[in-house]
Computed example of a mutant assay.
Amino acid sequence: MEGTVDGFRYGAVTPVAAYLMACLGGALGLRCIVRTLLDTQARKAGWLALGAASIGSGIWTMHFIAMIGFQVEETRIRYDASLTVLSLVVAILVVGIGVFTVGYRGASSATLAVAGVITGLGIAAMHYLGMAAIHLNGDFDYDPLVVTLSVLIAIVAATAALWAAVTIQGFLMSLGASLIMGVAVSGMHYTGMAAVSVHVHDAGGGTWAGDSPTSLLLPMLLGPVIFLVVAGVVVMFDPLLVLGDGDWSRGAPPRRADSTAPAEPPAREPGALFEAASVSARGAQEPRWTSSRERGR
């Protein structure tokens, strides 16, 4: 028989929390990538890796917070822990491919297209791999057209996120971009969930292994959430990322001259330096020559 699928078991709590986590991961990822644009020589690979991990963790956390509100009324739900962890690894790796590609090769149309497709397919793979981790007394069926639509949304969202990461540098603009990213990623998730229907087996269909959503997802979500908080602290206290909006596009802040240090004279051509020395010497001797002539008179 057909199962009764409900993706909003706790009302608006899970979709709002999921959206906020997607926005947080996107905002931190954008700030980390902007950091490599402000100072390209300082730990670029490290900042790109932190950005990829932030975006990937945000997307994964969004997915499984939303899945806490998923239920099929006629059967219990269990989760396979290994596939759940694997989906997190896939999310971070594929986002990392896109971020590093754009970070090192720039934001040309061809680069964005390739990186966006790879990252979007990876996000979709993370979603459906997370769905494969679900065990229940039944089978999932997917509407192919809606699945295709969800994958297209993931590709467009990934491409837009990568473009924003290397194009938008102002804090407020990046914040707006992260809010749009949250809408896109959450839209992809709930579009994918709209493709799901469940065919439930008979009550005596046997048992299945796995952990309940509360016993697995809540403790597992704690790690990525703590990581995002730590990443947020790193981003907030980085010197180049606390500048005003007017300084984003000028790269690293200019070095201030020390008021106690002696000012260096401006550089002169060798000929000009010789002439200045000659004029200075004549000027210094002129008073002594004049005074001696006056004494001779």
Rank of each mutant, 00 (worst) to 15 (best):
G3K: 01
V5K: 02
V5A: 13
D6G: 04
D6H: 13
Y10F: 13
A18M: 00
A18E: 00
Y19H: 03
A22H: 01
G25Q: 02
A27N: 13
C32F: 15
T36I: 10
L37E: 14
R43I: 12
K44D: 09
K44G: 07
G46K: 15
L48H: 06
L48W: 04
A49S: 13
L50C: 11
G51F: 03
G51D: 05
A52W: 00
S54D: 05
I55L: 15
I59A: 11
T61M: 08
F64N: 01
F64W: 10
F70M: 12
T75P: 01
R78P: 02
A81S: 15
L83W: 10
L86W: 04
V89Q: 02
I92N: 03
V95P: 01
I97D: 03
V99A: 11
T101E: 05
V102D: 03
G103Q: 06
Y104F: 14
G106K: 10
S108M: 09
I123T: 07
A124P: 01
A125P: 00
M126L: 09
L129K: 03
M131Q: 09
A132L: 13
A133I: 05
I134N: 00
G138N: 01
D139K: 08
Y142R: 04
T148Q: 09
L149D: 05
S150R: 00
V151K: 01
L152N: 04
V156G: 05
T159L: 09
A160I: 04
L162S: 07
W163E: 06
A164S: 14
A165G: 14
A165S: 15
T167G: 07
I168Y: 11
L175K: 06
A177F: 01
S178N: 06
L179V: 13
I180M: 12
M181I: 09
T191L: 13
A194K: 12
A195F: 10
S197N: 07
H199I: 12
D202C: 08
D202L: 12
G204E: 10
G204I: 09
W208E: 05
W208F: 15
A209Q: 11
D211H: 15
D211L: 15
P213S: 03
T214R: 06
L216M: 06
P219I: 07
L222C: 13
V225P: 05
L228G: 01
L228M: 13
G232A: 07
V234D: 08
V235P: 03
D238S: 09
P239K: 00
L240R: 12
G244R: 08
D247S: 08
A252G: 05
A252H: 00
P253Q: 11
P254V: 09
R256K: 13
S259P: 15
S259Q: 10
T260R: 14
A261D: 03
P265E: 10
E269W: 07
G271H: 10
S278A: 15
S280Q: 13
S280I: 02
R282I: 15
Q285W: 12
E286H: 15
P287S: 09
T290W: 04
